[in-house]
Amino acid sequence: MSIHYIESVSSGCGDRVTLSIRWNNARIEVDLDPSPTGNTIQDSFIEKYNAAVEDGDDEEEEMMSDQILDAIVQAGRTSFDRLAPPPAPDASTPADLHSLIFPKEYSFFFRTNVETNAAELIPKDNEDTTMHEEFDLKYQLPANSEAVLPKFSTRDIHVVEKLLGDGYIARVLAGCREMCCKVGDELRADALQRELSCLLTISTSQHAAALRVPKLLGLVEAADDGRTIGLLQEYIPCSDTWELSTLRNIESVSSIAKARREKWASQIQQTVQLLHQIGVTWGDGKAANVLVHRDTDDVWIIDFRSGWTDGWVSQELSGTMEGDSVAVKKIFEFLEV
C-alpha cells in the first residue's frame, strides 16, 4: 500500500496551482495550468482553490486541496507506484532522514483529455519523467558557537513516524534514542532559527530542568555538505490515537475532570512565567501547541517558531510577553477554568 500526502500547495504565476506530493520515498510535483477554453477539470479546480485562498476560507482551501489530490491520485497511481514503489511489507528498518528530505523528484502536468474529458498526467518535457536527484535546501541554521551540541548526519537519523505540522517534523531514532526532529526550508529558515535560539537559551538557563519544554538534544547536518538544517528535541510521548495528543484535540472539555484541567492550566501559566524570566517568549501560544504527556498527564509547551493564529494571538502581539499573556488567558477560557 503506497503512502502519500500533500507536502505543500502553491498558487499564482498565471493562476497556476501546484501540488507537492510525497509518494512513498519520492516527491511528485504536479502543475495545474488554465486551459485556453477555461472549461476543463483543472480550470474548475484552479478557480475554486484560488477563490478559497482569496476569501481566507481555510476549510474550503483544505477541502479543495484534498479534491485535487484525489483526482491526481486517481489519474497517476499506476505511474507513481512504478516510479516510487511502496515499501516491502516486511521492511523492518525505518527510512533514513536523508532519503526522505532529499528525495527523487518527478514532475507532471495535470491535463483534461479533450476526447474523453478525463483527467490525465503528462510528464514534463515530453520525457518519461523529469527527475531531480535532490531537493536543494538552500539555507543553513547558524548555531551559537558557545553551545556544545551533538550533531547527527541526515543519513544516521531514521524516521519512525512523520508528525503533523508545517515543515518536516518527525519522530526519529538518532544515536539509539527516540527524538523529535525538525527540518526547515527556505521559507521557514528564520522561524526555525528563532526556535533554535529559544531552545539554546532555555537549555543554558537556571530553569532548564523545571521548564516543561522539550529539551534541545542535537543538530541535524546534511550528509553531503555538513550544513546545519534542523534540530533534534526530546520526544514527548502522546496518545497513540491522537485523542489527547494536544489540548486542541479535546472534543468535550466538560468530559475532563475540572481538577485535571486546572492542573494543566497552572502548568502552562508557570511555564510561560519561567520563560519570561529568562527572556524567552512562546510566540504562537494556543491549545494546539500544548502536548499532553501520555504517561505523566503533564502538559508541555512546544513550537517557538513565532507566527500567530487567529483567535489566539494577534499578529501585532506575536512574539511578545503581552501576546503570551493573551494566549494563556485564552487557554484558561478554552479549558473552562
Score class of each variant (00 low, 15 high):
268 I>P: 00
289 N>P: 05
144 N>D: 15
279 G>W: 10
163 L>T: 07
236 I>L: 06
194 R>S: 13
75 A>D: 02
309 T>H: 08
182 K>A: 01
23 W>P: 02
96 D>F: 05
149 L>G: 02
278 I>V: 12
9 V>M: 12
74 Q>E: 12
188 R>E: 08
235 Y>F: 15
18 T>A: 12
209 A>M: 10
226 G>C: 12
317 L>G: 01
16 R>C: 15
79 S>L: 12
45 F>I: 03
297 D>N: 15
269 Q>H: 11
266 S>E: 11
120 E>C: 09
82 R>T: 11
237 P>G: 05
6 I>Y: 08
230 G>A: 10
140 Q>T: 13
329 K>Y: 08
55 D>N: 14
36 P>M: 09
171 R>T: 01
137 L>W: 03
167 G>M: 07
151 K>M: 12
62 E>I: 08
73 V>D: 05
210 A>T: 13
274 L>T: 05
67 Q>G: 00
88 A>L: 15
254 S>T: 14
146 E>T: 09
98 H>A: 13
33 D>K: 12
80 F>P: 01
205 S>M: 12
3 I>Y: 13
264 W>D: 01
6 I>C: 11
118 A>S: 11
63 M>L: 09
297 D>V: 02
326 V>S: 02
325 S>E: 13
169 I>H: 01
93 T>S: 07
294 R>H: 11
322 E>G: 02
39 N>M: 08
129 T>N: 07
188 R>K: 12
256 I>W: 07
85 P>S: 08
334 F>M: 08
239 S>Q: 06
53 V>G: 00
54 E>V: 12
187 L>A: 15
222 A>S: 14
59 E>T: 13
154 T>A: 09
78 T>G: 02
34 P>W: 08
285 G>E: 03
61 E>C: 09
148 V>Q: 14
288 A>C: 08
169 I>K: 09
322 E>N: 09
47 E>V: 10
270 Q>S: 14
292 V>E: 00
152 F>E: 00
64 M>K: 05
133 E>L: 09
262 E>S: 15
225 D>Y: 05
258 K>P: 00
229 I>W: 01
56 G>N: 06
186 E>Y: 07
299 V>W: 01
13 C>V: 09
243 E>M: 04
2 S>Q: 01
163 L>I: 11
36 P>K: 11
265 A>L: 06
152 F>V: 02
293 H>E: 08
61 E>H: 04
321 M>E: 12
269 Q>A: 13
318 S>E: 06
247 L>M: 07
253 V>G: 03
131 M>T: 15
40 T>Y: 03
268 I>V: 15
184 G>T: 04
130 T>A: 06
116 T>P: 07
328 V>W: 06
44 S>L: 09
7 E>F: 05
56 G>R: 07
44 S>R: 13
307 G>N: 05
